[in-house]
C-alpha cells in the first residue's frame, strides 16, 4: 500500500517510492539521504505531532509534515 509519509505512524516501516517535487524542498530531502528506494522507519513525532523523525541509512532525520507531503512510501498492510 502506498501512503504519504505524513500519514505514517510511529514505529511504521516502509520503502520510499516517489519524491515528487521540484526546487529547494525536494533537493533538501534528497541531500539528507532520503532517496527513492530507501528504507525508512518512523522513530517519533514532536510534541505537537509535527515535525516527524525518521530513520534512513542508520541516521535519524526530521522533517515537517508539509515537507513529508512530497514523499510517497510503500508500507505493508
Amino acid at each position: 500500500m502506498e501512503v504519504l509519509l505524513r500519514n505514517m505512524k510511529v514505529n511504521q516501516k516502509g520503502k520510499v517510492t516517489k519524491i515528487n517535487c521540484e526546487g529547494e524542498v525536494c533537493r533538501r530531502i534528497r541531500d539528507i539521504g532520503i532517496s527513492v528506494g530507501a528504507e525508512i522507519f518512523v522513530t517519533g513525532r514532536a510534541p505537537l505531532y509535527d515535525p516527524v523523525a525518521l530513520k534512513v541509512n542508520d541516521t535519524v532525520v526530521t522533517l515537517r509534515n508539509s515537507e513529508a507531503d512530497n514523499i510517497y512510501v510503500e508500507v505493508k498492510g
Partner: peptide, 10 residues
C-alpha cells in the same frame, strides 16, 4: 518561509 529538514546526530 523555508525548509526545515535536519539531522538528529546520535
Amino acid at each position: 518561509n523555508s525548509v526545515f529538514i535536519m539531522e538528529l546526530p546520535p
